[in-house]
Design a protein around this nucleic acid. Structure first.
Lengths: 391, 391
DNA sequence: ACCTATTTTTGAAACGTTTGTTTCTTAAAT
DNA sequence: ATTTAAGAAACAAACGTTTCAAAAATAGGT
């Protein structure tokens, strides 16, 4: 990245006609004014829908405006209004790949909304990746320069970044799926306890009594919320929980595989080098759950693989449900039953709030409404299970 | 998105002090000049590393510059230089989710490089999602306004967008994994024939003779390139190909599952409602490949699931190799052997070229160097296979 | 010493907006 | 008819840079 020489030496005439192109010089507000026989101030007023322009003039200017295909120069406008017309979406470099992918989905939604809102709003969203351990981070720089009008952050923000934000009065909103929300920040939250409750209730409603849970201990807030929902559903359905079937080693898909393995081997961790057949035998001899709830689709994918590796069929022997509805969920074999989380909703709630604040208003945190289970192929009602199951 | 009122009425004093914040007014180039007892022109020259400033003055100005923590106002600079200091990365809305995820990975690499290049280069990258069927798209608008200094596009660009780009002399580079490159455009390519050849050769080198291929017919260019590489490897290893084991229905992971099913049932498509057991029996009776090469990891995931659904073990009965090395590849059970494609390399090659062109230079297309197979757990040498295999 | 080249430095005019203030219309009220 | 007030439109000064053209300082010959 060294050779990024961004200087342009004596390039006025050159840049005016852009490299080798005809590059029709774009019409300025003054051109329009001249064409209408009116002052540039007036044109500016109609552009910004201000009071005090007669209807006749307004109409005339508007006509010329779009017959000329006029487009504002954002730099000039921003120079005067002290805005950058950019919001920044920050993702922690350290976030898990699966999380990043999800966050990107949200950013994509924002970008789409923004570009379809043209030319009403000319904002753009720029993704920023920030490491947890940088002392003076790139983001603080942007903030102090006034290069950002607002930030959307996933998971949370480092204290010094928050300091910079507050210091410059730059609004920000946190989209924090599964993280504890800083009460001072406006944030868009997901009720994972509820989601977990719904998923588990759904499984229970199908007659399953032996249900395992695979969560993510690495995120304590998320872990306890989901576990709480799971237990509540169990309790309300008169089911008893089994300690060894509540697993949380999973901090990534690899961990989920391990969790599943332990569940199937009755909590005994497979010895290094233990023969596959032996491990399997061990598993089949003991008790196993007829359904497992994973707090993320990706966990379910791994867990399903492991179960099959042990010789169980999905869903005939063991049912699986996840949360997220990642794109693969419907393509996998068998398609995964899951509760969707809508990136579009998250994006809309967050952007609505951010723009309200950019416009000088206030905004309150919100918890997005939970959605319902999407029934696919990874779940089988207890009564239709292939073989009888004895705990 | 309606309520995005971006006007600020009579907000001069308000915006000067930013909402409720102390918001230290950032130092301008004139402030620095005054502090050094020098003109603003001189400061500008040292900022931009221009000729004709004496070393003494240059040093003095530089000292003040960073003791004051000066940061350029990008809007003012851009207004004068006719640059936006933003490049746009465009992704087709219609691209497959898996592709989008990969493209995002590349954009993430770009964003990281850009933010770590601060404050040398102050560029930012903004993702744009563009639909194939929009007539006058958002991108053309950006281009005509001079709101973008360059674009990176994945897969390709619509003719009218290319027209706008050429018209305004805005440089662009195409990152087109698996798409036919427009010879007039500078593009960063991947040699999928080579990748396919390497993967297949690797499998063959392990003693496998019955190798199946699952490709992506929806992308004809990609499909024929990969198939060519596959066949070449077969030929060079003295292996004969089987028509029914070269499958290309796969245009998404779902299709890959279908392809695998057909391979296992000897090309007979399973009847709607055919009993699972029956399907399985059908499969086991006939011939099956001992290894399958999938042109994308995601295909391999589905194919592996199907194979296991049919009762085959991976890799003991059937080996799998993919291309991409998506993050999940190493977490799946068993971890997938694959050839990686480096998003970082793609990002660097593309950005290097784009910036060269932005700086007025020329750039040539390039094919990035192919990488080697990463050996994981989804492949088993022919000789170690669990059961003897009879075709 | 002076005149000329050369190197440094500076003044000031842009770039395309927004917006506070002033000026001009026009109509209503006296 | 004259004054007043409101409403429209225009002027012109910013915003923070870059860069042309010109001035000032320095150095290099005679």
């Amino acid at each position: 990245m060294s050779g990024y020489d961004v200087s342009n030496n004596g390039a006025n005439s050159e840049s005016n006609a852009r490299r080798g192109g005809k590059g029709a010089a774009p019409a300025t507000i003054r051109d329009i004014a001249r064409l209408c026989g009116v002052s540039s101030a007036t044109v500016s007023y109609v552009l910004n829908d201000k009071y005090g322009v007669s209807d006749a003039v307004r109409a005339r200017v508007k006509a010329v405006l779009d017959s000329e295909g006029y487009a504002q120069n954002l730099r000039a406008k921003g120079l005067k209004t002290r805005r950058s017309y950019a919001v920044h979406a920050v993702i922690r470099k350290e976030a898990a790949p699966a999380c990043k992918a999800f966050y990107f989905g949200v950013i994509a939604c924002i970008a789409e909304r923004l570009s379809s809102a043209l030319p009403e709003s000319t904002y753009s969203v720029v993704p920023v990746f920030q490491s947890d351990d940088e002392s003076d981070d790139t983001l603080s720089g942007l903030i102090r320069n006034g290069d950002t009008d607002g930030v959307i952050a996933f998971q949370g923000l480092m204290p010094n970044t928050v300091g910079a934000l507050e210091g410059q009065g730059v609004p920000y909103v946190i989209i924090n799926p599964g993280f504890e929300a800083d009460p001072r920040a406006v944030s868009v939250k997901i009720d994972f306890e509820e989601l977990s409750y719904r998923a588990t209730s759904y499984i229970a409603s199908l007659g399953h009594a032996d249900i395992a849970f695979i969560g993510m201990r690495r995120l304590p807030f998320f872990f306890s919320a989901t576990k709480r929902g799971f237990r509540r559903a169990l309790r309300e359905n008169g089911l008893t929980e089994r300690r060894e079937w509540i697993r949380g080693e999973a901090d990534c898909a690899e961990g989920a595989a391990d969790a599943m393995r332990r569940i199937l081997t009755g909590g005994i961790k497979a010895e290094r080098g233990m023969a596959r057949e032996q491990e399997r035998g061990m598993a089949r001899a003991g008790a196993y759950p007829t359904a497992v709830f994973c707090t993320q689709d990706n966990f379910a994918f791994s867990a399903m693989s492991v179960a099959r590796g042990f010789g169980y069929r999905v869903p005939e022997d063991i049912s699986f449900v996840g949360i997220d509805d990642v794109p693969e969920a419907k393509y996998i074999e068998p398609a995964l039953t899951t509760i969707p989380i809508s990136p579009q909703t998250l994006a809309d709630e967050a952007m609505g709030r951010l723009f309200a604040m950019i416009d000088g208003g206030q905004a309150k945190s919100v918890t997005v409404e939970s959605m319902d289970v999407i029934e696919r192929k990874s779940v089988c009602p207890r009564e239709y299970m292939a073989t009888s199951h004895a705990v």
